[in-house]
Every structure is written in structure tokens, then in C-alpha cells.
Computed example of a mutant assay.
Amino acid sequence: MTSGLEAALAEASSPSWLRRARAGRDLASDLPEAADALVGLLLDAEDTAVTRQTAEALARVGSVAAVRLIALAVAEAYDHQADWLQTGLHDALVGPDGVVGGVLDVAAICGQLARDPEEAVRRGAAEVSEWMDDTDC
């Protein structure tokens, strides 16, 4: 029988955007085992919903490892993808009443990532920090 992680990893390469989006949500808590698959989902070339939902799920996890993957994807994303990464982060940070919540401290994590050994992560974290300074996320 297939484990939940194995099943979600298989879904990450599904031709169905719904399955890939579900995989992004399911794999967000499986770091570091699912890191490569998650970066692929964050940079999904087929459907922006996959990008958005995976970014939201990782932002909700709120760990340094999760935000690091978002930063890495931001550094590699083209403009349209970056917009959807930002939207996914916004979705995670804004509560149902439209108020930015204090639960997730993505800006503080980006501050830590500013010293990451990988240049792409530092660059992506700087961009995410700029988003955090923006009132719309």
C-alpha cells in the first residue's frame, strides 16, 4: 500500500491541475522530503491555481523551511508566476475579515533568509520582504 507522502508525490506530477493543487496542500507539511516537488508545484507552468494554493499552504506552515521554498520559487519565477506566489502568500496572511493576521511572521523569517548561503534564496526573500511591506501583502 502507498503511503500518504508517496501518494501526494505521485499527484504532484498529475496531468490534472486539481490533483497537483491538492498535492501542494498535502505536501506542505512534509518538509524536507517533499521540497523538490513543492518547488515544482510553486513554479507550475500549467495552472496558476497550483502555484497559488501551494504558496498559501507553505505560508500557513510558516516554518523557515517552508518560507525558504517560497523565496526560492520567487527568485526563479517569471513575473506572472511571482504575482500568483504573492497572491498565495496574501491568502494565507489575510484573515476572513480582510485583516492581516499576526500568526505568521513571514517578514521575520525573510530576515533570517537574508543570510542564507544560496543567493537565489536571499534574492527571493528580499522580494517577499518587499511584499510584506506592501499593505496588500
Rank of each mutant, 00 (worst) to 15 (best):
D30R: 15
V50R: 07
A59E: 03
V64K: 13
V50Q: 07
P32L: 00
A82T: 09
G95Y: 07
A45S: 08
V74R: 02
R25Y: 05
L43E: 10
R52T: 15
D26P: 06
G98R: 02
A37E: 09
V39P: 01
A66W: 02
G95E: 15
A73E: 02
G102C: 12
A49L: 15
A65N: 00
A82H: 14
A75V: 09
Q81S: 14
V94C: 08
A65S: 06
V94L: 07
A28C: 06
G102W: 11
D83G: 06
A92M: 00
V39I: 13
A77S: 12
L41N: 10
P32K: 06
A75Q: 06
W84N: 07
D26T: 10
L38G: 05
V67P: 03
A71N: 01
G88C: 13
A82D: 13
G40M: 12
A75H: 11
A77W: 03
D91R: 11
V50E: 13
L43T: 06
P96L: 10
L89D: 01
D26K: 13
Q81R: 11
A35K: 03
L41P: 08
L72W: 04
D26E: 13
A65Y: 00
G62R: 01
Q86M: 12
L41Y: 09
D83Y: 04
R68I: 05
D36C: 08
V94A: 11
H90F: 05
D97A: 10
L72R: 10
A37W: 09
D30C: 14
Q81F: 10
R60W: 06
L42Y: 04
L72A: 08
S63M: 03
D91P: 00
L42P: 01
V94D: 01
G62P: 01
V64D: 15
R25C: 09
A49F: 12
L42W: 02
V74T: 12
V74A: 14
R60C: 04
T51L: 06
G88P: 01
D30M: 13
A66F: 03
L58H: 03
A75P: 09
L69I: 12
T54Q: 03
G102R: 10
L58E: 03
A34F: 02
P32F: 04
A59V: 05
A49K: 11
L27V: 14
A28G: 04
Q86P: 04
L31R: 02
T87I: 07
G98A: 04
G101H: 11
A49S: 11
R68D: 09
A55M: 11
D44E: 07
A57T: 01
V99T: 13
A45Q: 10
A73T: 09
V67L: 15
R60N: 05
A45L: 12
D97Q: 12
E46L: 04
A34E: 04
G62K: 00
V50L: 08
A82F: 14
A37F: 06
L72F: 08
R25D: 07
L58K: 01
G95K: 11
D47F: 11
